[in-house]
């Protein structure tokens, strides 16, 4: 299998993730774009690990670390999104950027 094939797949996945992060209004859906980008990076790491055949399996171990960090990131990110929703009543990032001070804060 040519090395280029997983690399091109991962670059396509990364581009789609960039589009998702920038185009989504819902903050949770923007986080899904971040997940797509992380998956692209993981695919790259595994492909290079298979190419280099490191005896310490550096690429695969680092992929596992990226998966754990992605789990931490998504947990913290969703906590922040929930806090935003309770403070402002919306998770629309455009609305949050436009009139951040318009609504009174009604924290529960």
């Amino acid at each position: 299998m040519p090395l280029l094939q997983p690399l091109l797949l991962s670059s396509a996945l990364f581009g789609i993730g960039v589009y998702g992060v920038l185009s989504r209004r819902n903050a949770v859906l923007a986080l899904m774009g971040v997940e797509l980008m992380l998956n692209a990076v993981m695919l790259n790491l595994v492909a290079f690990d298979v190419w280099l055949r490191d005896s310490l399996l550096t690429g695969q171990v680092f992929t596992l670390f990226v998966i754990a960090l992605a789990a931490a990131e998504i947990g913290l990110g969703l906590a922040i999104v929930l806090r935003l929703f309770r403070a402002y009543g919306t998770v629309d990032v455009d609305a949050l950027a436009d009139d951040r001070r318009a609504d009174p804060v009604h924290v529960t």
């Binding site: 670059s11 581009g15 789609i16 993730g17 589009y19 992060v21």
Partner: peptide, 10 residues
């Protein structure tokens, strides 16, 4: 703009 950014990244 998002589509342009995604395509140019790819």
């Amino acid at each position: 703009v998002a589509a342009f950014a995604g395509f140019s990244t790819f």
